[in-house]
Design a binder for these strands. Sequence first.
DNA 1: GTGAAAGCGCTAACAA
DNA 2: TTGTTAGCGCTTTCAC
Lengths: 331, 331
Amino acid sequence: MTLKDIAQELNISVSTVSRVLNGQDKKYRISAKTAKRVIELVSKHGFTRNQVARNLRMQKTDTIGLVIPDISNPFFSNLARILEEELRKHHKMILLCDTLENSALEKESIDLLIGRKVDGILVSSVGLKSAHLHNIDIPMVLIDRYYPDLDMPYISTDNFKGSYLATNYLLKRGHKKIACLQGLKHTVSNSERIRGFLQALRDFDISEHEVQILGDEFSIASGYNAAKEILTSSDHPSVLFTLGNQIALGALQAITESGYKIPDDFSLISFDEQPYFQLMNPPVSTISQPVENIAREAVNMLIRSMKGEEVSSRLIAPKLIERSSVNSFIT
Amino acid sequence: MTLKDIAQELNISVSTVSRVLNGQDKKYRISAKTAKRVIELVSKHGFTRNQVARNLRMQKTDTIGLVIPDISNPFFSNLARILEEELRKHHKMILLCDTLENSALEKESIDLLIGRKVDGILVSSVGLKSAHLHNIDIPMVLIDRYYPDLDMPYISTDNFKGSYLATNYLLKRGHKKIACLQGLKHTVSNSERIRGFLQALRDFDISEHEVQILGDEFSIASGYNAAKEILTSSDHPSVLFTLGNQIALGALQAITESGYKIPDDFSLISFDEQPYFQLMNPPVSTISQPVENIAREAVNMLIRSMKGEEVSSRLIAPKLIERSSVNSFIT
DNA sequence: GTGAAAGCGCTAACAA
DNA sequence: TTGTTAGCGCTTTCAC
């Protein structure tokens, strides 16, 4: 069923139908009677107008591309949930692209979104390179994973600060040998967290040589493997600092399997709070990211950017949640 | 940039450009030279053809609507991840609709998807009523949440069986007073789980009056509140059976806060395995849903349904994962 | 107060 | 081997 069908059935023109359906009957001074006839027929038949045709004509789609590395990671699924909610307020739908932390897929996804003429793109870039983000003339906001030197607005946790906070906390409690279990190298989230980690060490006059940095993915498997390696090495650190919630899960699994106890044998602190951390044995101290703020602000920025306004990037400070997974050597 | 621009620049017709871009140059015997000129220009300018126009002309969009109650629930985000991966193999993208467990939003979402002319819809229905799913002439597969008496293919966990399995396990270990913490009433997942629970009781000659059923959402908050109510009541059950992963998280939180120990004070078993359950104190026994199978099969069914093939519904049996959160009174 | 018609960018039937 | 053209369903300018 199309506007044309309705027009024919009522013996009026498609333009009139279109106008009524767009609530422009006042504006075009269409008689209340005609408007009523249209409305009634439409609701009787349950007609929904063809958005594809409309999008083509209007040169906009009311669709936003969401490009994220892994929707099954609770950090991103929480983000997605709020983004969706906020975007709906602006009558926009989300085209979802999960890039599986793969740069090639990310590039491909963005090309697909451009072809589909989305009105804007929210992307949490895998992050190794940003070439595919240049010269895109669709409003775009980087979220969580950004490129500091790319001229494109971003909104993210202040990963440096968060990591500094965590490391400083460890150092103040007398930890000197720290093993840092990182995520995907060369992503900003990871390198900023590493940077914060190293800066805190430096401020405490601890040499980088006393710490270890292991792992290569924001995944359970990577956390598990890295932790296993640590546990079987002769030179034990006193604490593990995991740079993501999934990494922590993997590390905890390895520790549990090996029969070690937290915090007696190893302390643990993790980036990226999740509800289950407080229920672990013992409850795990974490750095909590302002997911809700990030999501709302991202939509805000994108919408403004779509209106042609200038928007400036922002980093939001995370918080330390102290629980009982970190031992203290200071009396 | 459009096909027309390219055509003009090369002094050929749009149809030739279109044909080359669709890889139909052989079919239409377009000279290798012409084809090459097109390809070169296109790659030089980084042209992506307008899918909106193409979709209108082709009467299909290569887009699938995904309608789920809560993308932030790990069960659904895991599902979404695999669905996305599978659909990409068929060159389909996902339009995401999170209904926030709200029937009105679900109806609205489906209408929007119909307007956008998606090629198919995957829906995990909130479930209270199914009226809005009647008379939809787009291929549709129900996933996880279905309507048994609606003539629409579905794929889901066998919730009855899973719940029976869990309850039977409890009963065999001597539990008689069970508190069941349910999710959203009138959703199939919930009512089937309740049915399995009650059936197991009946098979053990235990009266329904000896058990409690509390809660009303698949959320942390609902689990927390229900558990609080149980903990403060005079008539303690020996075990909590939570019907969803989020409910379990809430219940565990309440138990921990109240200072009770699992399984000494209360036993606990939960529907819907997640990685963190094995890391709890103590590790929580669960019913594990075959998420990956469900996702792959859903896509399979939808694709076949889009080809006009008949597809039949299926329930997949879940598994019991025994850990140490359930006490035994049998010696 | 309403209608005719152009055109969004593409594909494909038909023509040459 | 390539071009012309109709038309997908809608919005909107211009005309009456």
